[in-house]
Nucleic acid binder design. Structure first.
Lengths: 364, 364
DNA sequence: ACGACTTTAGCAACGGCGTTGCGCAAGGGG
DNA sequence: CCCCTTGCGCAACGCCGTTGCTAAAGTCGT
């Protein structure tokens, strides 16, 4: 019996999360701020703040003395009161970061993984790094869980890896179950690009409603953030942006199609023609904008960031010239502010989002 | 002061809508069915059913006498208790339909619109057709409102048409405001393709969570249904699927880019090469699946339905061969069951969905 | 110096939601 | 005939945000 109906505990959790989101976005705020932004009564805000302060995630931060009227209590998020670990698993390395409630990266490290590593080897390596993080920072009672962002395909709902590309020991691995037991912490698993876009969504707040994180790093992918939440698709397989055809009868791609964005892009890179590569990516980005009408595009990935300006300028120019884009059709383009930590940081923030983010209701 | 917080009226409305959705999907149901599907107590279901029966949208439909135990009350949706009108505005014609709560089309008609028609002419024509519908069916006290699906670009939230392509009198027209006043009914405006996919979503129920309605009719577009709701994008401009590039340096498109899906497709149609046209569309559909991971694809639009089998087979074949699609990556492909009424019917269902569908909460 | 006014804040009572406990009715079996 | 299962509603309950009211803190005009 799966619960899909809303009840009072949902109501409470939802409004609590609303205030938490404001706290995260505004850094300091007053009761009136919350009331105006949410429509809640000041009384309700008081009750909610009491709850959050009991949990220790929000604290008073002085008073503001207005020109007229009584002094107002100022509050702030206690960013350090909770934290989460995030892992970025690629084919050869494991990157781990520690982030706090505000989405700030507190600690970060990279280790090589053995060739063709097994699930057991991965979890062992993770356990070692978690110990290391514990020596660098006091995690006791603050650690919310561990998030893992990795190459797909996988099944987010079931928490299993369906079969990571070019990794032999990764077919139908119940990674969440396995890692939860081994690490003794709540574990989340998601596609790398989806984790990445979550990092941006968690940090940027409400204006970041429809966005994509374009990632170029051993392949081309896109993490999608639609209607204020990660979009994973029907089988957790959304974001295979690199395998969309941009050139009918173009060069053959590893995926079996011809003229995939990734194939055309990579070929240009191999030729050393970075300009063309960037221009091809830009065409794909505009394609994405045409179908999804995004407000934000974030560029990321080691191979892209290595030539960040080239890619950024190519996309910028495409936005200006590829389509007569009306003045109201604005797009915010940027390079990720988290550098190569995005995926791992986003995986960590997924854990925080699950616990402190605005909850959804299960579908029927 | 915009309300974004959840309160008890939201809670009530949400659970009511949950039961309504089940009623629509299942046709007949019992209290136990609802309880199991939603997680609500039987007591709560009783209270909700009482409310819905007072409104007249649900009614008892006999009793089921089980082999053991007391007889159980059976209920059903009273589909005819509410209805809505939907309009499909294209450049030359106005199609209007009347649908009931179940999404069944009760009445349908098409009229030509004057060349370069004005907002006033459109609303006048609509008013005439609404009278006609009123003579064919008794709408008194049952009519929920009027939905309008039309060519963009427009602003769904503001209810204004930004400037319909190739229509002179349609720049920054506050259509919702204008039509609401003229017709004396609640009015919704949305892009044609988005209205279309809503029709499918409303009729198909819960399994239809991530889907696209591919439409070929004086252009190529896609209505997107993501995570169980219409996806409009940041500026109500999502779905410009026809203007995604599938052939770098391909033929020039009216939009200014080169090698747009629509340009390549239309050129093939002009040559009489329908097979190629369909194959190009199929490439685009697979592109969409790669980026969004949809579970359902519905084909629609007059130009497509005229050769429905050709297009359907082309897409089917592309699904099988274009990508090594794993067995778990299933896609349900179909032609729309509503024929050329989809857009208008969907516009009507958007009105019903707004009133009787599962509500969302306003973002922060 | 003092009352008028504005703003903040908390206590207490309230209405409404789903939940729980319990009693009652309807229908097979033993 | 009693017992059991199943369906169903009344009544009390807990908890949510809301409303009404009072008090406190401070500015400003007189």
């Amino acid at each position: 019996m799966h619960r899909t109906a809303a009840d009072l505990t949902f109501l409470k959790g939802y409004n609590d999360a609303l205030v938490m989101t404001l706290a995260r976005t505004l850094r300091t705020f007053e009761r009136t701020t919350v009331s105006e932004a949410t429509g809640l009564t000041l009384q309700a805000v008081s009750k909610i703040l009491t709850r959050l302060m009991d949990e220790g995630v929000v604290a008073p931060a002085g008073v503001r003395r207005p020109a007229i009227g009584a002094p107002a209590g100022v509050y702030e998020l206690v960013a350090g009161s909770r934290c989460a670990l995030g892992a970025h698993v690629s084919r050869r390395t494991l990157r781990m970061v520690l982030t706090d409630l505000a989405g700030t990266v507190l600690w970060s490290t990279v280790t090589p993984l053995p060739p063709d590593f097994t699930p057991g080897q991965l979890v062992d390596t993770m356990a070692g790094l978690i110990d290391e993080a514990g020596r660098a920072h006091d995690l006791s009672g603050r650690l919310t869980g561990v998030g893992i962002g990795m190459i797909g395909p996988l099944d987010h709902a079931a928490g299993t890896v369906r079969g990571a590309h070019r990794l032999r020991h990764w077919h139908d691995v119940p990674l969440v179950e396995f890692a939860t037991e081994a690490l003794g912490l709540p574990v989340h698993v998601d596609k790398d690009v989806t984790a990445g876009v979550t990092a941006e969504g968690w940090r940027r707040g409400a204006a970041f409603r429809d966005a994509a994180l374009i990632m170029v790093e051993a392949g081309v992918g896109a993490g999608l953030w639609l209607n204020g939440a990660a979009h994973r698709g029907a089988h957790t397989n959304a974001g295979e942006f690199g395998h969309t055809v941009v050139e009918l009868n173009g060069p053959a791609c590893v995926c079996g199609r011809r003229g995939c964005l990734e194939a055309v892009h990579d070929r240009a890179v191999e030729r050393g023609d970075l300009e063309t590569a960037a221009r091809v990516l830009a065409v794909g980005v505009v394609n994405l904008l045409q179908t999804l009408d995004l407000s934000h595009v974030v560029l990321a990935g080691a191979d892209l960031l290595a030539h960040g300006d080239v890619y950024r300028q190519a996309v910028e120019q495409a936005l200006r010239t590829e389509v007569p884009r009306a003045d109201w059709l604005t797009v915010d383009l940027s390079l990720t502010s988290l550098g190569e930590d995005v995926i791992a940081a986003g995986a960590a923030m997924q854990v925080l989002d699950d616990r402190y983010g605005i909850p959804g209701l299960a579908p029927l």
